[in-house]
C-alpha cells in the first residue's frame, strides 16, 4: 500500500471511530472541570492575570510603549489568547500518548484519536477567552473587526501547527522521555520570540524578518489572528501568512508521516 492509501484508510478509521474521539474529548473536559472549584472560570482568570502582569511590567516598570497604535490591552490579550491556545494544545498533544498509555496498551483504536481528542480542553478555554476579549474590546471603546469571519481559519491554522509540533513530540517522547523536558522550554521561549505581548511592528523593518517568519510560523499566524479581531489591523502581511501556512502544512504532514511510522512501536515502550 502506498503512503497515501494508508493515510486514507487511517482517516476512514478515525471517521469510523469519531464517537470515541468525542467521548475522549468529553472525558478530558468533564474531568478538568470536576477537579476544580472555579471550573471554567480558570479560562478567564488565567489570560486576564497574564495580561495584567504584562501591563504592569510595560507601563510601570520597563516603561515600554508599543508603537503600533492599537490599545495595548487588546494587543496583549489577543496575543495571549492565541499563545495559550497554541501552547496548551501543543503540551497536551505531546503528552497524550504517555498519559493514555494504559488505554494504548490494552485496546486497539487508531492512535491518532488520542492526539486529536486532547485538544478539546484548550479549545473550550479558548472560546471562553474569546468572549472575554470581546467584552474587553467593547469596554475599551473598540469594536470587533469585520474580518472576524477569518477567525475560524486562523483557529484551524493554529490548531494544525500545534498538532504538528505536538504529534512530532508525542511520536518521539514515548521512546525518548528526555524530550518531555524540552516541551516547557519551547513554550516559555516561544512566548518571547513570537509577537505575543508585542506586535511585529518593530520586526518588520529588519532584513532577517523573512527568515524569522520561515523559522517561526507562529509569527505570521498571530498577526493573522489579530487581523481577524482588531479593527483595521495593518500589521497583517498576506505574504508572511503564506509562508506560515506553507510551513504549518509541512510540519503537520511531516508529523502525520512520523507518527504513522512510529505508532506501532508505542506499546513496546509504554
Amino acid at each position: 500500500m502506498g503512503i497515501f492509501q494508508r493515510f486514507n484508510s487511517q482517516f476512514k478509521e478515525i471517521l469510523h471511530d469519531s464517537e470515541l474521539l468525542f467521548i475522549l474529548a468529553k472525558r478530558d473536559i468533564s474531568v478538568r472541570y470536576k477537579q476544580t472549584y472555579l471550573g471554567v472560570g480558570w479560562a478567564i482568570v488565567r489570560p486576564v492575570l497574564t495580561m495584567l502582569v504584562f501591563l504592569f511590567a510595560f507601563k510601570n516598570v520597563a516603561k515600554i510603549q508599543d508603537l503600533s497604535g492599537y490599545p495595548i490591552q487588546l494587543v496583549i490579550f489577543s496575543g495571549i489568547l492565541f499563545w495559550n491556545l497554541f501552547a496548551t494544545t501543543f503540551q497536551s498533544v505531546s503528552n497524550s500518548i504517555i498519559v493514555n498509555g494504559n488505554l494504548i496498551s490494552k485496546v486497539y483504536f487508531p492512535r491518532l484519536i488520542i492526539c486529536l481528542s486532547s485538544i478539546a480542553v484548550s479549545l473550550i478555554d479558548f472560546l471562553v477567552g474569546l468572549v472575554v476579549y470581546i467584552i474587553l474590546a467593547f469596554a475599551l471603546g473598540q469594536s470587533i473587526s469585520i474580518h472576524i469571519f477569518l477567525l475560524p481559519l486562523a483557529l484551524i491554522l493554529t490548531l494544525l501547527s500545534s498538532l504538528g509540533f505536538g504529534i512530532l513530540f508525542a511520536s518521539f517522547s514515548v521512546k525518548y522521555r528526555d524530550l518531555l523536558q524540552i516541551i516547557p522550554l519551547v513554550v516559555q521561549y516561544g512566548f518571547f520570540v513570537t509577537p505575543i505581548v508585542y506586535t511585529s511592528q518593530s520586526l518588520i523593518g529588519s532584513k532577517w524578518f523573512i527568515y524569522y517568519s520561515i523559522i517561526n510560523p507562529l509569527a505570521g499566524l498571530v498577526e493573522f489572528f489579530r487581523y481577524s479581531l482588531l479593527v483595521k489591523y495593518h500589521l497583517f502581511n498576506p505574504q508572511i501568512l503564506w509562508i506560515s501556512v506553507a510551513s504549518t502544512l509541512f510540519i503537520f504532514s511531516l508529523s502525520l508521516f512520523v507518527f504513522h511510522k512510529r505508532e506501532d512501536s508505542f506499546v513496546d515502550h509504554l
Binding site: 472525558r27 470536576k34 490494552k106 485496546v107
Partner: peptide, 17 residues
C-alpha cells in the same frame, strides 16, 4: 478484546459516564 476489566475507567467520572 478484553485484556483487562474496566479499561479506561476514569476515577473522577461517575459510573454512568
Amino acid at each position: 478484546s478484553l485484556l483487562e476489566v474496566g479499561t479506561g475507567f476514569h476515577p473522577e467520572l461517575t459510573g454512568r459516564e
